[in-house]
Design a binder for these strands. Structure first.
Lengths: 200, 200
DNA sequence: CAAATGACAAAAATCAATATTTGTCATTTG
DNA sequence: CAAATGACAAATATTGATTTTTGTCATTTG
């Protein structure tokens, strides 16, 4: 697209646009090459395979999910409020991406199955943001936790139904928000001061 | 199989066996008819379609999941112990079914997508068993909850990663048990006495 | 000589002709 | 006459021949 200079970045730009337009299953590296007006062999000088290209696109795409969340995580507001905001935002972004653009949803599904490493890194990033908020909450004496990373993992896992794309079909149910509220209340009363006595 | 008498039950028996043997995608109603040594038209006198037959098989199959759980739910032990046992059992059964028999796993996936009503009824049954245990827990002054059904739904939803078949691929991860333990501890401290102050 | 090309083999997807399966129903059977 | 049959049309799946796509690399180009 950006004339004459061919960088990995410009390839990713073109690739992402082509993925969007043709859908993830149907796009070939020849299509991407055509969009850039180069031969498809050229793409292979920059990315070792079609999978590598798709993973790179995915990574950038997931970064655009985690960046605005990082901003929320870094705020100064009370940790309980902030954690709620953070999850509302996460859920909103995921729902939007998945329901708004069905073609992209298929990509996401394919990725989740095949680009395991990229997704795992993304999840790790998200969990560490949650851990940050929880740690702040402990300092503010709102939350009680000996190990904020462990607590963060637990919170992430307990809310999986509301943000993991495999559950996307359930998100259009009318009571999905109240289901989330219920789970949220349960989690929050587990996380909040005063500490519950040790579990059995 | 059972000679000469053809009841809906005997058809289900045969159908289930054929499903097991040939896998869910490949079995035809002709196969089921052959196993019973009748014409395939006969099957249609008892079940209005192949889908209806498959749903009926599924329903019986899911009942064999919920029956042993109902037994646990009805025990007299302390509610917290019993709830833990109940979930361990649920998870064990699901893992076994899904990982033990890959063909059957495919059936389960197909069902979850297509036989929505049957699965929904099953989930409702499970949630009502949890509600029963929680209610006992409140009476025993172990748990604190104003609405046991709502709490039950929350607990079920929060543990979805560990029993919903769409997450089966994650179950072979080495840390799945400790992930469950973490979520369980979080949930339990949310559920347990003394009641946390009202949520924001 | 660094970067891009395009001819090429191997792997994967498409397509249309063929075969199987589903579901119906008029006829047969006990 | 109630229950089962099997011939049938429509829908669906299979198959294998053909095309497209992926990935490599010796050659070309600026």
């Amino acid at each position: 697209m950006t004339d004459s200079v061919l960088t990995p970045e410009s390839i990713l730009d073109a690739a992402e646009e082509v993925f969007r337009k043709y859908g993830p299953t149907k796009t070939t590296v020849v299509d991407v090459a055509r969009a850039l007006e180069v031969s498809h062999g050229t793409i292979y000088r920059h990315f070792s395979s079609k999978l590598a290209l798709r993973d790179a696109v995915t990574q950038r795409w997931l970064q655009r999910v985690s960046a605005p969340l990082a901003a929320i995580a870094a705020e100064k507001s009370p940790a309980d409020e902030r954690l709620r905001q953070w999850f509302e935002q996460l859920i909103m972004i995921k729902h939007q991406k998945v329901l708004g653009d069905p073609e992209l949803f298929a990509t996401y599904q394919a990725i989740a199955e095949q680009a395991r490493e990229v997704v795992e890194a993304h999840v790790e990033e998200l969990v560490s943001q949650i851990a940050q908020i929880i740690e702040d909450g402990v300092a503010q004496e709102i939350f009680c936790s000996t190990d904020s990373l462990t607590a963060a993992q637990a919170v992430f896992n307990a809310t999986v139904r509301f943000h993991h794309p495999v559950h996307a079909a359930e998100w259009s149910a009318p009571n999905i928000q109240s289901d989330f509220d219920q789970v949220w209340r349960l989690i929050m009363s587990g996380l909040r001061m005063p500490c519950a006595s040790s579990a059995t």
